[in-house]
Design a protein around this nucleic acid. Structure first.
Lengths: 205, 205
DNA sequence: TTTTATTTTAACCAGTTAGTCAAATTTAAA
DNA sequence: TTTAAATTTGACTAACTGGTTAAAATAAAA
């Protein structure tokens, strides 16, 4: 009497794959049905409409891409350790979901009201303490002054750009410098952490 | 006897607006026609198909977003000045075309073969000298060692992220820190240049 | 087994979309 | 002015798309 859960899962897997690859407008219900190995009508039996199905996939994607912003920064550890943890965690997530940023940013740009209220709520407890912790380090003369918002933008930008701009940059690197993009990706964790360390930490001579 | 140029221009303006807002799949020829104030059939008279029209708009957008990578880095000036010029130029371009990165990266991600061969050609003369110039500064002990490819990724990431992630980040900043995103944007030039300076330049004590 | 509820399907439908075409209108040339 | 070329339009079409529906198949309950 219970719904066959594996069918629902097959649909979700197929929908995730197709939506992330083609976007809301480019995706076809027929293609999702084919990839799930089922009838198109069954799609509407499980999820009433394309939009409902898409919402499900997008929420999931948004949650994934919001990972860490919460967990990491609320832990009671030194600031630079938070950055290190954040970088490591985020690159792990991205390397497993390389197409997520383009998908989320793209759909969000065409439809900003899709933004979840949830994520904004549990951001309240984090931003404040993190802000204070940075101010302290700056006042102690250990960090060069920078607004936390800018620092977060800098980090997220450096983390995300290789995945967002890959189809544009990878061919150039390969052609003119004979560099495999995967090698660059493998070095990102260390490079980014060193870069922000060098930018932030003041040598005490 | 010459084609009415203003009609073609009206079409291109409308197409640019609609395609960048909705993407290839989300755009409708009828909407482009409406926005251009003409008949839909006239669209096909000037540009034979939706794809042809889109190609035109995308190429233009790609050229715009590739600005500076060529001009700035081939000039014979100190390395840090190149970075400063690049940052200034790029932010000016982005502030005039804030939706371009999401558009180009999004369409390129769904259709990587759209990549122009042109841009790769005139990149040949630039990458080499820039690479060498950086090596020299590093060997002279003036710059901390970093692979030029990583540095470019860092810069482009920091430059582009506010525009790409705006609908995600702006509400958070407003809600929890009461910061207007435009204020952040206005500070980006200086912040980014200071950040990479601090990260790269070795103090000679 | 019989009955009832759930899952799956094939066929269908109404609305939309890119693209066409013949005719009308405007512009330029002879 | 007349003729020819270029521009613009309204009406149309064939293909596609999300969604529906009634019936069939399967599973569960009685």
């Amino acid at each position: 009497m219970v719904k066959d859960n594996s069918t629902e899962q097959k649909i979700l897997d197929a929908a995730r794959s197709v939506f992330i690859q083609k976007g809301l407008d480019g995706a076809r219900m027929q293609e999702i049905a084919n990839e799930a190995g089922i009838n198109k009508a069954l799609l509407h039996y499980y999820f009433r409409s394309k939009d409902k199905l898409f919402d499900r996939i997008f929420s999931e994607a948004f949650d994934t891409i919001s990972t860490g912003l919460g967990d990491v920064f609320s832990r009671d550890i030194p600031l630079m350790d938070k950055f290190k943890n954040f970088i490591d965690l985020y690159i792990d997530v991205l390397s497993k979901n390389p197409h997520l940023p383009v998908f989320v940013f793209g759909e969000l740009s065409r439809n900003p009201e899709r933004l979840q209220k949830g994520i904004e709520k549990n951001m309240n407890n984090i931003m404040g303490p993190f802000f204070i912790q940075m101010m302290q380090e700056v006042n102690l003369g250990r960090l060069r002054p920078i607004h936390p918002a800018h620092l977060m933008l800098n980090m997220i930008g450096m983390l995300v750009i290789p995945y967002v701009a890959r189809p544009m940059i990878a061919p150039i690197l390969k052609q003119h410098l004979n560099i495999d993009f995967q090698d660059i990706l493998d070095e990102r964790k260390e490079v980014i952490y060193k870069f922000i360390s060098d930018a932030l930490i003041i040598d005490e001579k």
